[in-house]
Design a protein around this nucleic acid. Structure first.
Length: 280
DNA sequence: CGTGTTTGACCTGCGC
DNA sequence: GCGCAGGTCAAACACG
């Protein structure tokens, strides 16, 4: 699907990985790409092997660093997307948190809220006074279940067909701690059935279950972890894998440290090459 | 048998 | 007061 802001479903796929609106140059200052620098995709593996291995280690570390930063940004931008909704509406935007619908123009999707710090950040940036917040989660379009597992354990206590959506709304309580006051409402978006709109009301009065406990809970539940599924599919889908790699590569290329490392590696090789094969 | 889901009935708040 | 819609309860049921 093509949207009137020039994006399409394909571009939104990559957008989903980062959660929220496409960062503009103003939002995320990016270093200027060196205009007189180009990197060939074909590299002769016969020279500079040892030197390049060291550089590879360095680059792998860079890649890991970028991956970790990407993960953190995902959580932070998810929280910011909520905070930005007012501005989005003013410019004709997008995610209607009041009615749980998602405009096709833009898609603000949370792909992961799975650790306690992420919950705290979400709360601190969303609506701490009302103690409610709403997120949207992309799931498999063919998955008709309203299962959204976020590390906590939920017990469904009701389901209701509402007026503003053809899809039923499911009501959940936290079953990990019987006295926990938090509630969760899950409803499929009427405009994009692959998106689940999740409303949390209240706060947990206990800690996030440990990894072991979560593992037991998640494995015991039928239908799989919808949030985990999104991440899993993101990694396992060849197209999304490619998009993820492209984005990481893009991040690396605009990183001055990365380009400097590449330049140094190439300079090493060139100097080695000149020594072995002087100009005629 | 324990735990979670389903689903119809009931409760509650709100607008008219 | 009435009707409507959203939210909750609880008995029946399914499942491991």
């Amino acid at each position: 699907m093509d949207y009137d802001d020039g994006t399409n479903d394909r571009s939104c796929l990559s957008l989903d990985l980062f959660v929220g609106p496409r960062p503009s140059p103003v939002d995320v200052p990016t270093p200027a790409r060196p205009t007189n620098f180009s990197l060939s995709t074909q590299v002769d593996s016969s020279f500079g092997q040892q030197s390049f291995s060291r550089k590879e280690d360095s680059l792998e570390a860079q890649l890991n660093k970028v991956s970790e930063e990407n993960r953190r940004l995902t959580e932070i931008v998810a929280a910011l997307s909520r905070n930005s909704q007012g501005a989005a509406r003013r410019r004709g935007g997008s995610l209607d948190f009041e009615h749980g619908s998602v405009s096709p123009k833009r898609k603000w999707i949370v792909d992961c809220v799975k650790d306690e710090d992420a919950w705290k950040r979400l709360r601190s940036v969303t609506d701490p006074a009302a103690k409610t917040f709403k997120i949207c989660i992309r799931t498999d379009q063919n998955d008709s279940s309203n299962v959204v597992k976020d590390g906590y354990r939920w017990r469904k206590y009701g389901q209701k067909v509402t007026r503003d959506s053809p899809f039923p709304r499911a009501y959940f309580r936290c079953s990990f701690a019987p006295s926990c006051p938090i509630k969760k409402k899950v409803q499929r978006s009427s405009e994009d059935r692959s998106v689940l709109v999740v409303v949390y009301e209240g706060e947990h009065n206990h800690r996030l279950p440990s990894e072991d406990e979560r593992s037991i809970n998640l494995n015991a539940a039928e239908g799989g972890d919808a949030v985990g599924l999104v991440l899993k599919e993101t990694v396992e889908s060849p197209e999304l894998q490619r998009l993820l790699v492209e984005q990481m590569a893009s991040s690396l290329v605009v990183d001055p440290n990365f380009t400097a490392a590449i330049a140094t590696a190439i300079a090493d090789r060139l100097s080695s090459f000149r020594i072995q094969q002087p100009f005629h």
